[in-house]
Design a protein around this nucleic acid. Structure first.
Lengths: 158, 158
DNA sequence: ACACCCCGGTTCGAATTTGAACAACAGGAG
DNA sequence: CTCCTGTTGTTCAAATTCGAACCGGGGTGT
């Protein structure tokens, strides 16, 4: 037999895909982080919080929902929301339907900040990722990574 | 005209690709981090250090080279190499051709650790990413993200 | 109503990451 | 040889991250 207990290692193509993914992800994050920080003083994570809130009905989300969308830990979110609250970009409300619940809500100032920060951020995402790829590559990437994300979300609930 | 100073926002497909990329990346990292930590006590970053060293001629690399491959900060690498050195998985040597240089080298113990940790890690990468995608998707992803990485490396040197 | 277990969010301490400042050296122009 | 500029790796303080422990509630079964 070809393998007794040997794992199935990655072949050249698989390895290229995996390394490419990791490397591109790291490089991209670094670059976006720098740009956002010096352009609007926000971290990428903070920016994403504002984005997700502004995309939600009522510009607000429950903490847990938000943490799930951001793919971050609950404690991490607590910290960042506190930071954003100090900066006046986000406010905490208590949830009417559940005493335990906390709702994070975008403030006017937060909306304004997002309006300021978004163009530069989007332009860079476009320059470094979107415009580097063809329309077909984009489609494949969206579909493929969508499946990967779905797969990961599925058995995340163990 | 269609836009005066309006940025070119992302259309639906572009947005799907971008969100998919970010989300899959975060989910994957989280999952791999957990697995590695409880399976061998290594962080993903530490694991990658071992991988890159073992792939290099002489199982060793200059600190700067290594930092570049890992896409991390110099100070971050200094920290992690120190941790791995304490654990006996990596050793520091001074560089013969450059007094300032420091060479990180994989120890026998480090090689052994990698041999132990790799199968589980690879299996998970396969399960969560590689095997979720078709051969074509993998190829497109490798090529596309390869280009993105190249693009990022290119103007990184400013 | 009661016990029981699950959930939502925060707190805590420890680990990690970062950029800026630094010291020591390399390498080339003059 | 002597500046001068660019590199190399480390140190430092500050910011961020994580998981585990925790405190109150929910909500279901009986």
């Amino acid at each position: 037999m070809s393998s007794l207990n040997e794992p199935r290692w990655l072949d050249q193509d698989e390895m290229a895909a995996w390394r490419g993914f990791v490397t591109a992800s790291n490089l991209l994050n670094r670059r976006l982080e720098r740009q956002l920080k010096e352009d609007s003083g926000l971290s990428h994570q903070q920016y994403e919080i504002l984005v997700h809130l502004s995309a939600a009905p009522g510009d607000s989300l429950r903490m847990t929902e938000l943490a799930d969308k951001l793919v971050t830990s609950k404690s991490g979110l607590t910290y960042q929301v506190t930071q954003l609250e100090k900066a006046g970009l986000v406010a905490r409300r208590s949830c009417p339907s559940d005493v335990r619940g906390v709702i994070a809500e975008l403030t006017d100032q937060g909306r304004e900040m997002l309006r300021m920060a978004a163009p530069g951020h989007v332009a860079l995402v476009r320059e470094l990722l979107i415009d580097v790829l063809t329309r077909e590559q984009l489609a494949v990437l969206a579909e493929g990574l969508g499946a990967v994300g779905a797969r990961l979300r599925r058995d995340e609930t163990y």
